[in-house]
Simulated scan of single mutants.
Amino acid sequence: MVTSLAKAQSAGEGDKAQLSIGIIADPQYANKEARGSRYYRESLGKLRRAIAELNQHQLDLVVTLGDLIDEDFSSFNPVLKEYQALKVPYYHVLGNHDFSVSDAEKARVPETLGLGKATYFSQQHGSWRLIYLDGTELSVFRYGIGDLRREEAQAYLDKLTEAKAARGRPWNSGLTAKQFNWLEQELQAAKQASQRVLLFNHLPVLPAEDGHNLWNAPELVTLLEKHDHVAAYLNGHNHAGNYAQHQGAHYVNFKGMVETQAETAYAIVRCFQDRLEINGYGAEPSRSMR
């Protein structure tokens, strides 16, 4: 159930958030002219102002939901410098545009974003488990021409295209079977530890007909709906934003920061025992989700 933020705050007045997280989606910075509603160069200033605001709040961490850059490996350096001003730890999930670099540079992207060999991982924060997914593992953009993994992804995409699935687009991607197995183990471990779960990924999985969805979104939703301790799945990718509720879990697609010349979009998610509260800034709406 989604209620107005003001109503929820008054109802829960006096309680304290168990976890507070800054959320940034799709800055998609590049030093180039705007195209349509995407103002790539302006993202640097918007990001700087967002970080200054986030530093005014008591946060535990900040998560960027993919597409830190739009293209060109040289775009990483100026945008990552802005993150150094953050007063709390920050983490990135991989997005499709993060691999809009030369084939020779693609393998360097995860390390550049502070990720190790395992580009999906989890963290425990008291009664919460945070799961960071890598929705780019199965993709046609992450690997260079001639790479077997790219050929396998193309075969997967061809099947989706033949089935006329809305999510069957080359700018979308999916999880590997290995990552699915790992996720199942993480969900089970969280349940045994009596932890609620937040998942972060670049690509959405709901609503079902979104053309930006993860290639294997139906399989992921089927897995998550078996676990009633999953509180929310948080993502970017669709710059317009979106929201769905399914089997008690909330699926929130945050708006892209790169959109529009002046208006920004980012948020703070606060986790309480009985609800999640999203404080939206700029174009991002505020929500309270029981």
Rank of each mutant, 00 (worst) to 15 (best):
Y29N: 10
V221Y: 04
Q185V: 03
N216Y: 12
Y83H: 00
Y29Q: 03
L148G: 13
Q261W: 07
Y120M: 10
H237S: 00
P78N: 03
Y266H: 02
Q56G: 12
L80M: 15
Y233L: 01
R275N: 12
S127R: 14
N55Y: 09
A50K: 06
A153C: 13
L138P: 07
K7C: 09
L234K: 11
F99K: 04
D147Q: 13
L54D: 08
V269C: 09
G116Q: 01
A267C: 12
I131R: 06
N181M: 13
H202F: 09
H250F: 10
N181T: 14
T119D: 09
T176Q: 00
C271I: 02
A163N: 06
K159T: 15
Y29I: 08
E186A: 14
Q247L: 14
Y251F: 12
L61D: 11
Q188A: 11
N77R: 11
R270W: 08
E111M: 06
E225M: 09
D134F: 12
Q188I: 06
G211S: 11
A52L: 14
H237R: 07
S102T: 15
E152F: 07
V140G: 04
L44N: 00
M289F: 06
E277V: 15
G135T: 13
L94R: 02
D26S: 08
G116H: 00
L183A: 03
H212A: 12
R48H: 11
F141M: 01
N55V: 02
L19V: 13
Y90G: 04
S286F: 03
D103H: 15
K7Q: 14
F272H: 13
S286M: 12
R150W: 01
K81I: 12
V101Y: 03
M257E: 07
I51L: 09
K16F: 14
G126H: 12
R49N: 08
F141W: 01
A208N: 03
K178A: 15
N31H: 12
G114M: 04
F272W: 15
K46E: 08
Q261S: 11
A155N: 11
D228K: 15
L65K: 09
V258C: 08
L54N: 05
Q124A: 14
D210Q: 11
Y243W: 14
N253H: 01
Q195Y: 05
N172W: 04
N279T: 15
I21T: 05
F200M: 02
S100Q: 08
V252I: 15
V252A: 02
D228M: 07
L86N: 01
L157S: 02
W215K: 06
W182R: 10
F76D: 05
A153M: 12
Q195D: 04
T161R: 15
G36V: 06
L94Y: 02
Q124N: 15
A25I: 03
T161P: 05
S43H: 00
D15I: 06
Y143K: 03
V63R: 02
N201F: 00
L19R: 04
R142C: 13
A283H: 11
W171D: 09
R290F: 08
R48W: 02
L276A: 03
K81C: 10
Q56L: 12
A85N: 15
G282P: 02
L115T: 06
Q185D: 10
D15V: 04
Q84P: 00
M1I: 11
R287C: 03
K255I: 05
R41P: 13
T119W: 09
L160A: 07
H237Q: 07
G211P: 10
K87M: 05
Y29T: 01
Q56C: 05
A193T: 10
Q192W: 11
R275K: 06
K7P: 04
V205Q: 04
